[in-house]
C-alpha cells in the first residue's frame, strides 16, 4: 500500500489538485456548483471534448512533440463532413471526417519524422492550412439543424442515463489505455519518447511509431469534430477556439512532461478535468471569459514549475 503511494506520488498529487479545485468550488458557491444540472453539463457535455483532445495531445507530448493542429482538424473535418450528416448519410460523413483526420495526421507525422521539421512548426503549418481550408469550405454558409439520428450520437443514451458522448469517451479511453500500456506499439511510443536514438538502435522503427501517433491524433480530432457538430447541432469554423490551448494545458497539468516519455492517457483525463473545472469555476464566479484564456496560460506555466518541484521531490526519494 505504502509502496503504491510512493510509486504513484506524482499521479496521486494530480488527482489531489483536481479534488482541491472541486472542493474549493463546492465551498465557494455550493448552490451554483453542486447541482446536478451544472455537474452533468460539465461532466457529459464539456469534459468529453477536452478529454478526447487531451488524449491526442498527451501522446504527442510523450513522443517529445506537440500537436498544434488538432483543433483545426476538428473544424476542417466537421466542415467537410457536415453536409453528409445533414442529409442523413452517416456512413459517408464518418468516412470523410476520419479520412480528413487521418490525412492531416499523416502529413504531420511525415513532416516531422521524414522531413525533420520541428513538431511545433510542422503542426503549426498544418493548423494554419487546415483552418484556412475550413473557412474556404464554409464560405460563409453555416450548416445547422442536423437530423435526429445524427444528434443521437452525443445526446442519446445507449445505456440508460449515461449520454452516448460519455460512453464514447469511455470506450476511446479504454482502447487508448490498452494500446499505449499493453501493446508493443505503446511500449515503442514510450521508448521513443524517452530516448529516440536508443530506440532506433534497439531495432524499433521509431519514425513509424511517431507517424502513427500523429495519425491517431488526426483521427481523434476528426471524431471530436463529428461529436462536437452533433452536440452543437451546427457546423461552425469558429468553434476551434479553446481546444488547442486547453488540451496542451490539460496534458501538462495532468502530469505529462514536455521532456518526453512521461505521462499517460489516465493523466490526460485528470488534466482535462482540472481544466474543465477551472473554466466552470470561473463561469460560476462570473469571471469574464476574457480572463479565462490568460488563466489557462498561467496553468501551463504553473504545471512546468509543479513538474520541477515534483521531480526534485521524487529524486530525493530515489537517492
Amino acid at each position: 500500500m505504502i509502496d503504491y503511494f510512493k510509486k504513484n506520488v506524482d499521479f496521486l498529487s494530480r488527482i489531489t489538485i483536481l479534488l482541491i479545485i472541486v472542493a474549493g468550488m463546492s465551498v465557494i458557491n455550493p448552490p451554483a456548483f453542486l447541482n446536478w444540472n451544472n455537474l452533468s453539463t460539465v461532466m457529459f457535455q464539456q469534459a468529453p471534448f477536452t478529454i478526447l483532445m487531451s488524449f491526442g495531445m498527451t501522446m504527442a507530448i510523450i513522443t517529445k512533440g506537440i500537436d498544434k493542429s488538432m483543433a483545426s482538424i476538428v473544424v476542417l473535418a466537421s466542415m467537410l463532413s457536415g453536409s453528409y450528416f445533414k442529409n442523413g448519410n452517416l456512413a459517408m460523413g464518418f468516412l470523410i471526417a476520419l479520412a480528413v483526420g487521418a490525412a492531416a495526421g499523416l502529413l504531420n507525422g511525415t513532416l516531422i519524422t521524414r522531413v525533420g521539421v520541428a513538431p511545433f512548426i510542422a503542426t503549426y503549418g498544418t493548423d494554419f492550412i487546415a483552418l484556412g481550408l475550413a473557412y474556404v469550405v464554409c464560405a460563409g454558409r453555416y450548416i445547422y439543424d442536423f437530423p435526429a439520428n445524427f444528434r443521437v450520437i452525443t445526446n442519446g443514451c445507449f445505456i440508460p442515463s449515461v449520454p452516448n458522448i460519455a460512453l464514447v469517451t469511455m470506450i476511446i479511453f479504454i482502447l487508448l489505455w490498452f494500446l499505449t500500456r499493453k501493446t508493443i506499439f505503446g511500449r515503442s511510443m514510450y521508448l521513443a519518447g524517452f530516448n529516440v536514438d536508443a530506440t532506433i538502435l534497439s531495432g524499433i522503427d521509431a519514425k513509424k511509431v511517431v507517424t502513427v501517433v500523429y495519425t491517431i491524433n488526426g483521427l481523434l480530432a476528426a471524431l471530436v469534430g463529428v461529436l462536437y457538430m452533433a452536440r452543437l447541432n451546427a457546423a461552425d469554423p469558429n468553434i476551434s477556439g479553446n481546444l488547442c490551448l486547453d488540451s496542451i494545458a490539460a496534458s501538462l497539468i495532468g502530469g505529462t512532461s514536455f521532456g518526453g516519455g512521461k505521462g499517460s492517457v489516465s493523466n490526460a483525463v485528470i488534466g482535462a478535468l482540472i481544466i474543465v473545472f477551472i473554466r466552470n469555476g470561473m463561469n460560476i464566479m462570473n469571471i469574464s471569459t476574457n480572463w479565462q484564456q490568460a488563466v489557462v496560460g498561467f496553468v501551463i506555466i504553473f504545471s512546468v514549475f509543479y513538474e520541477m518541484a515534483i521531480g526534485r521531490l521524487t529524486k530525493k526519494r530515489m537517492g
Binding site: L245, I248, W291, Q293, A294, G297, F298, I301
Partner: peptide, 10 residues
C-alpha cells in the same frame, strides 16, 4: 506558447 496565451487573454 504559454505567454502567448496569457498575452492574448490579457
Amino acid at each position: 506558447f504559454a505567454t502567448m496565451s496569457i498575452g492574448a487573454g490579457l
